[in-house]
Amino acid sequence: MFGPRIVGDNGIELRPPVLEDYHFFSTSQMQPEVTRFWGPRFTSETPAAAEERLKKDLEGKNSVLWSIAYQGETVGFTGIFDINWASRDGETGIYIGRHDLYGKGIASEAVRLRMAFIWNEMNFHRAHNWIALANKGSWRANQKSGYSQIGTYPRSWFRSGEWFDEWLGEAFPSTFPPDKLPSPWRDKEHPK
């Protein structure tokens, strides 16, 4: 399923994906700059298949997905996948498909919005993720919203003659920094 629109700071928001976003995801995932730490950089997805994937994601009961927009334009996606409803746990992920925007804090803000929704609207108990250890920007973005490292998976990715380990993280509602709660949850008029 798709998550609702959540407006954050600095022109960043999460919003339900549309078909054009799926085309952007497909093409951006073929770029060397954005696949340094993620994905094999090949695909079997045609434009028609992208539409099928959107329908499947929309109907899927074990994930909540968003597009990430920066200044009104879709630049990536995030979500929680493989949800275990009994344990109220799921795997989170994030992807920024515009490498010219790296370092602007987009991922940090998207993670903050995503986690606020997961804890406050889905009543989750836990979330977890795996991130390339060398992708500091990504795991730091997650750390800022309460993730901590629980292990390291050795030699997970091979790139340009180097093996990269993977950073294993988890977060709980109690580890989310209360002073970072975004709107609408921090708003005084928001019903408690």
Binding site: R88, I150, L168
Partner: peptide, 23 residues
């Protein structure tokens, strides 16, 4: 051998149990 440990991952019997990742 263990390379990671998730805390309070699986819910059953009225409480959570940890998960051990091994390699």
């Amino acid at each position: 051998s263990e390379f990671g440990r998730g805390h309070q991952v699986h819910y059953r019997d009225g409480s959570y149990v940890d998960e051990s990742w091994i390699l």
